[in-house]
Design a protein around this nucleic acid. Structure first.
Lengths: 249, 249
DNA sequence: CGTTTTGTTGACTCCTCTCAAACTGAGTGG
DNA sequence: CCACTCAGTTTGAGAGGAGTCAACAAAACG
């Protein structure tokens, strides 16, 4: 089902079978999108929201000089712009990073859900607040960590999120982003991201090559990124990090 | 009433008289708090949320070395930790910056609201998403602006928020924070904030002295901070910025 | 008033950016 | 099958913005 990954393994908010069916029934349409397309422009009035089924999406803010700051990336299972339901317009753009499959839910359907199933409505609310918690982790990353820490934290976070979506085994995962994407996530230049990646590689902590991340020494990566997955509100953080991934040696 | 400033002048989400009464009735208790107290610790199970009536509160994340990054500040009218209702525990601490008055709403009352008045529930949801939109503006600030831009953007944002709360006339407002607070907001050191403040003063753009901000040249402050108030979802952005505040000359 | 916090300034360091030039690899087309 | 292209990666050299450390001044406070 299209909603299979939504809120999976989220502490105190996983969906009951009935709720999942209800949400599945609210899907209006499923679309496939090409890579690197803008799908929502800031300020546009919106009447539907987008559940990401497959692929990677980004949310970003541009400045006047063409610089861009990503404010979120989304992995399969994320209800990317559910916040457009209460907000009606967005303050940022949304774009695909890779080819993607999305399920569309009209806001009238969400009106019906919050009227008839307030507890499901509360779980939808919850999911938008996870995104806000991730924003806060990113604020900490940008405000208080150096380049190496920012990249390490991002890699740990993405590993944990993909792990709970079943798309990472905990030490290897596909990450179809460029170094420039990571620069726009971490508030760095692509040149400096490259230097950080080299250092991570030379220190045998982590390798990012041909869209594949291989974590060689999870313990040191977690330490470098000061990563603590609490803010992801995962049901059982144990399997993910850090205990599970300690270096064999 | 304690809820007078809540969602005031928020685009498409202001409360009806009836909704305001309903929310007012949900208030369990009103408390006064001293300055510089931690009021919520990350990870604690919560069964009530806090509407800020008077004073300034902060939300922040600490790192291992005692560095701190503020992820939000709150002004009167903000429902500071409403997100604790769906989330149940918070991923960060909440503390007073000044002496403060808060109104407490128990989560059972919120359960009743979302069951009986789903549209009021949707407005509560909305208010938590405004905080997320502010997080995103802060991400842009930290990721893509230099020190001067970050401080200018923060001052513009705070002016706009206080203006809509009736606590700024658009060019002068009380801001009872230290330069170290602003450093923890802007991801800088207090020394560097001091240098930026001196430059803003010497260029006759803005003066911050004895807890009072005076904007001398709003146009240049807005330009320095690349400030666009859209993300605050204010009903009528005109009175605030930038048109209203253009320098007389 | 003395004490403590906050603000101010200078000298020096260093992390990250900028600019520039290869290099690589996948695709494309002659 | 080989040039060619183009996006992405890699590396170097130099500049600069922000941090660090330290000292002192000025407020705020009890």
């Amino acid at each position: 089902m299209f909603t299979d990954r939504f809120l999976r393994y989220k502490r105190g908010a996983s969906l009951s079978a009935n709720e999942r069916l209800c949400l599945e029934g609210a899907i209006e349409e499923v679309r496939t999108l090409e890579a690197r397309q803008i799908i929502i422009r800031a300020g546009t009035a919106l009447h539907e929201s987008t559940l990401l089924v497959d692929g990677f999406l980004s949310r970003y803010i541009d400045d006047r000089n063409g610089l861009r700051q990503l404010v979120a990336i989304h992995v399969p299972g994320d209800f990317v712009d559910l916040h457009a339901y209460p907000l009606q317009t967005l303050d940022h753009d949304v774009a695909t990073m890779t080819a993607a499959t999305v399920a569309i839910v009209r806001h009238e359907q969400l009106d019906a859900i919050i009227e008839e199933q307030p507890q499901l409505g509360r779980k939808l609310w919850f999911s938008t607040l996870i995104d806000a918690a991730i924003h806060r982790a990113w604020l900490f990353r940008l405000g208080r960590m150096d380049a190496m820490g920012r990249v390490a934290h991002f890699l740990c976070e993405t590993n944990a999120r993909l792990f709970s979506a079943g798309l990472s085994d905990g030490r290897r995962f596909a990450l179809p982003l460029t170094q420039s994407d990571i620069a726009e996530i971490c508030g760095l230049t692509n040149v400096h991201v490259n230097r950080v990646m080299r250092q991570l590689r030379e220190e045998k902590v982590c390798i990012f090559r041909s869209s594949l991340v291989e974590i060689l020494d999870a313990k040191r990566l977690v330490a470098r990124g000061q990563f603590d997955p609490d803010y992801l509100y995962l049901e059982d953080p144990d399997p993910v990090l850090p205990s599970h991934l300690e270096h064999p040696s």
